[in-house]
Amino acid sequence: MKNVLVLITDGFADWEASYVTAELNKPGTGYQVKTIAIDSHPKTSMGGLTVIPNYNLQDFSFKVPFEMLIIPGGTGWKEDKNQQVKKLVEFSFEKDIPVAAICDATTFLGNHGFLNKHAHTGNSLSYLKEEAPNYEGEEKYINAQSVRDGCLITANGSGAVEFSRDILSKLDIIEGEELREWYDLFKKGFIKS
C-alpha cells in the first residue's frame, strides 16, 4: 500500500480533506491515509474529532515512503510550534513528492516561500499578503478554487471539492469522465436546482 500523509494540528479543518481521504482509503486504490503531527499527542479538529497521529515529526523517519503530503487548514497555522512542519514540506519538495495545501495551510506555505515559484491560490491574495509577511509570490497567484502546478496543489477554504478533485487526478485515482462525474456529484448533488 502507498501512503498519503495528512498533516494534522490542533484545530485542523477536518472537512477540508474528508472528500479525498474517503476516496483514497477505498479498497482497490492501492493507497492508505496516515496522519502525521508535530508530536504524538492526540489532535482535536475544529469539528471536535480527536485523532491520534500515526506518525510524529519528532520520531519520523524520512525513510518512510509516502506519495503525497496533504495539509488541511485550521486554527493552528499561526502558532510557533507548528512552523516546524516546514522541514517536512522541504523534504517533500526536494524529493518531488506532491504537496497539497488548503485554506490557511496555503498561508503557512506562503510565509515560508513555498509558493513563490509555483502557480497557486489561497483564501485571497490580500489575505496571503496580510497574514504571511514573507510571502513574495503575488505574480504567481491565481484567483481560483484550486490550482495545480507540478507537485503543488493549493486551494482556498471553500474549495474542498476542487482540491479533492485535483488530488485524485494527480494520484491517478479517478480520471476522465469518471472524475468529472465524481466532481459533479459532490459539487452539484443528485438533485439539480
Score class of each variant (00 low, 15 high):
Trp182Cys: 06
Leu109Trp: 00
Ala160His: 04
Phe12Gln: 06
Ser61Val: 09
Leu125His: 07
Asn54Ser: 04
Gln145Gly: 03
Arg165Ala: 14
Ala155Lys: 10
Glu177Gln: 15
Pro72Ser: 03
Val99Trp: 02
Asp80Thr: 15
Asn25Cys: 05
Met46Ile: 07
Tyr55Thr: 11
Ile97Phe: 00
Pro42Gln: 00
Ser193Trp: 13
Lys188Cys: 11
Val147Glu: 02
Tyr141Gln: 09
Ser18Gly: 04
Phe66Asn: 01
Pro72Asn: 03
Lys63Tyr: 12
Gly28Asn: 07
Val99Arg: 06
Gly28Ala: 05
Asp184Pro: 09
Glu94Cys: 04
Ser45Gln: 06
Gly110Phe: 03
Arg148Asp: 04
Gly137Glu: 02
Leu125Ile: 09
Asp14Gln: 09
Ala105Lys: 10
Ala17Phe: 13
Lys117Gln: 15
Glu90Val: 09
Glu136Val: 01
Ala119Lys: 15
Ser45Ile: 02
Leu57Arg: 09
Thr29Trp: 03
Ile142His: 04
Gly157Ser: 14
Asp96Arg: 14
Thr44Trp: 01
Phe186Thr: 03
Val51His: 10
Ile38Pro: 08
Lys140Pro: 11
Glu138Leu: 04
Ser40Cys: 11
Lys188Asn: 15
Ser126Leu: 04
Thr50Pro: 05
Leu168Phe: 13
Asp172Trp: 01
Ile174Gln: 05
Ala17Ser: 12
Val161Pro: 03
Phe114Glu: 01
Pro133Gln: 08
Ser40Asp: 13
Gln84Met: 07
Ile173His: 12
Asp14Lys: 09
Leu7Trp: 14
Lys188Asp: 09
Met68Tyr: 11
Thr35Val: 08
Gln58Lys: 15
Gly76Asp: 01
Ser164Trp: 10
Tyr19Cys: 06
Ser126Asn: 07
Pro98Val: 05
Pro27Glu: 06
Pro53Ser: 10
Val20Ala: 08
Glu130Met: 12
Arg165Met: 11
Met1Ser: 06
Asp39Met: 13
Leu128Tyr: 06
Asp166Phe: 02
